[in-house]
Computed example of a mutant assay.
Amino acid sequence: MEDTAQLDKWTAIRRGLKGLCPSCGEARLFRAYLKPVDNCPSCGENWEDVRADDGPAWASMLIAGHVLAPFFYFITFRTDLPDWIRTVALCVVGVGMCLWSLPKMKGLFMAWIWYTDAPTSTRE
C-alpha cells in the first residue's frame, strides 16, 4: 500500500476514473454499478465512509449536456427528421452518456475525497 503523501494526485484520480482502488490500483473500487466495496481486498483501504453524494451525478450531467449541445444543434437544424425521432435520439444519447460517465465520475470523486483527506461520513 502506497502512502497518500507519496502518491501523486493524478495517479489516484486516474485510478479512480478506471474504477480501481486509488490507493493501490490493483483491486476494483466498485462491487456493483455504483456500489463501492467496503474495504479494498488488495491493500485493505476502507471505502465504507467515503461518500461522493451528488457530485458524480452533477458532473455526469454537466459533461453530457456540453457534449450533447452540438449533437442537438446538428440533429435539430441540419436534418429533416421527424420531431419524435429527434427527441428519441437526443434522449437515448443523453441517458447513455450519463450512464456511461456516472461510475467514472464517482470513482474520480471518491479518489479526490480520499486523496485530500476530506471529512467523511461518521457512523454511530
Results as ranks from 00 to 15, higher is better:
W100R: 06
T76A: 13
P70H: 07
I63E: 11
T120F: 10
P36R: 00
R86H: 08
T11C: 02
F109C: 12
L62Q: 05
P41F: 11
A12H: 05
V50Y: 04
G44Y: 02
D117L: 12
Y115R: 05
W112T: 15
C43I: 14
R28N: 04
G94W: 11
W100E: 01
F30W: 05
A52M: 07
N46A: 10
A59C: 06
L34A: 01
C43W: 04
R15E: 04
L20V: 14
R14K: 14
G96D: 02
E45Q: 14
A69N: 01
P56C: 06
D53K: 11
V93C: 07
E2W: 14
L34H: 10
V37G: 06
S60G: 14
G44Q: 01
E48I: 04
V92S: 05
D80G: 15
Y73W: 08
A52C: 04
D117F: 09
F71Y: 12
I13E: 03
Y73K: 12
L17A: 06
L108P: 00
F77K: 07
W47P: 06
V37M: 03
L81M: 11
R86G: 07
I113V: 08
R86C: 02
D54S: 08
E2K: 00
Y115L: 06
T116D: 08
L7Q: 11
P22R: 10
L102K: 00
P36C: 05
S23E: 00
C98Q: 10
V50A: 05
H66Y: 09
I75W: 13
D53L: 02
D80K: 15
S60D: 08
N46F: 10
S121W: 00
I13V: 15
G94P: 04
L62Y: 06
I113S: 07
R78Y: 11
G65M: 12
I85L: 14
R86I: 13
M1P: 00
T120G: 07
F72R: 00
G44N: 05
R28S: 11
L90H: 10
P41L: 13
S60E: 04
L68R: 03
T11W: 02
H66P: 01
C40R: 01
R14N: 14
H66K: 03
L99K: 11
C98I: 15
Y115A: 03
E26Q: 14
P41N: 13
L20I: 05
H66C: 12
D83K: 08
D49M: 02
T87F: 13
A59T: 08
L90R: 11
P22S: 08
R31Q: 08
G94N: 06
G25N: 05
F71V: 13
W58M: 14
G19T: 09
P103C: 09
L90G: 11
F77H: 09
M110Q: 09
W10G: 10
F109R: 09
M105H: 07
E124Q: 03
P56N: 04
V67G: 00
M1G: 05
E45F: 07
A111G: 05
L102N: 01
P119D: 04
I85H: 03
I75Q: 01
